[in-house]
Design a protein around this nucleic acid. Structure first.
Lengths: 149, 149
DNA sequence: GACGATTTGTTACAGTATAACATCACATCG
DNA sequence: CGATGTGATGTTATACTGTAACAAATCGTC
């Protein structure tokens, strides 16, 4: 399960958007590239800084709109617990991702947990609730951070 | 499943904290009371306003600290998606709560989904991740908001 | 080229949260 | 009793996150 390179990711993103009739404009692609370049969880204002470095003046709404779009398309996940964004780590496969947020190192890992998440949705449905495809996240300790040594 | 009255809730909260060796101080109790008084999802700055009305000058850290404590004790849930807090709706029973956040009316319902959530934890554990007891939330449409009529 | 719809730019501001340090309350122990 | 340590609260200032509202540019279509 080698992670995609930024180049591969951008390529797939293109196809992904084309297939959905969504316009992956220059700006949106650039923002996506900046997120990928940093790697891991990225904050909106980090992207803003990078964007300003790359293109001159830019304001918050510019990056928030691009990030919203990318989340909408499923290319990025929003990590509410950290007010951040992270590239989808299972773009190729159809999946329901579960985001594992380490509360020590703030690293985020995405695992495929389609079955469990479907169960969760079913439980919600029994309560009359109609879930929208959405990122579910758990916080806790990642493997590296719970070494007893 | 009648919801607890604020009085009942506060009483149980007392016992709950005592049992855990945590100090439910006057301030913390007051903050909890203000959340219960408003009902539903409450924002920190709403609590701040109410607290100022009730006790005179107060600053953000005062309420954030109290809210953090109450979340820590499991009396409140933090609703990341809304930057808000809501009283635990299953205080009496041992449960793993699943928060259902309606993206139309912003109402939050808490259902018991212990089984599904245990599955989720198990999936995380298989990835070497150790989840902490934590609120999981799904966004979507509540029953009232998806009336086709 | 005119038009409507979407995207982007820009300004200004609203809302959320914490760092850092001072002070206070309280339990414990010598 | 007073010293002392710990946790809780007060206080100031500031950092971080996000959006409303409107203007300008871009793109596809007729």
């Amino acid at each position: 399960m080698t992670p995609l390179s930024p180049e591969e990711f951008l390529l797939i993103a293109q196809q992904h958007c084309a297939a959905r009739g969504a316009r992956l404009t220059e700006l949106r692609q650039q923002v996506l590239g900046l997120v990928l370049a940093r790697g891991g969880v990225v904050k909106a204002y980090q992207v803003l800084t990078d964007l300003q470095a790359a293109r001159g003046p830019a304001a918050p709404p510019t990056v928030y709109r691009a990030l919203d779009f990318l989340v909408e398309q499923g290319l990025l996940h929003r990590v509410d617990a950290l007010n951040g964004y992270i590239a989808c780590q299972h773009l190729e496969c159809q999946h329901h991702g579960l985001l594992l947020v380490c509360e020590t190192c703030n690293d985020v890992t995405e695992i495929d947990a389609t079955d469990s998440l479907d169960q969760l949705s079913a439980a919600a449905a029994r309560a009359g609730f109609q879930p929208r495809r959405q990122d579910v996240l758990l916080t806790g300790l990642c493997q590296s951070c719970r070494q007893p040594s």
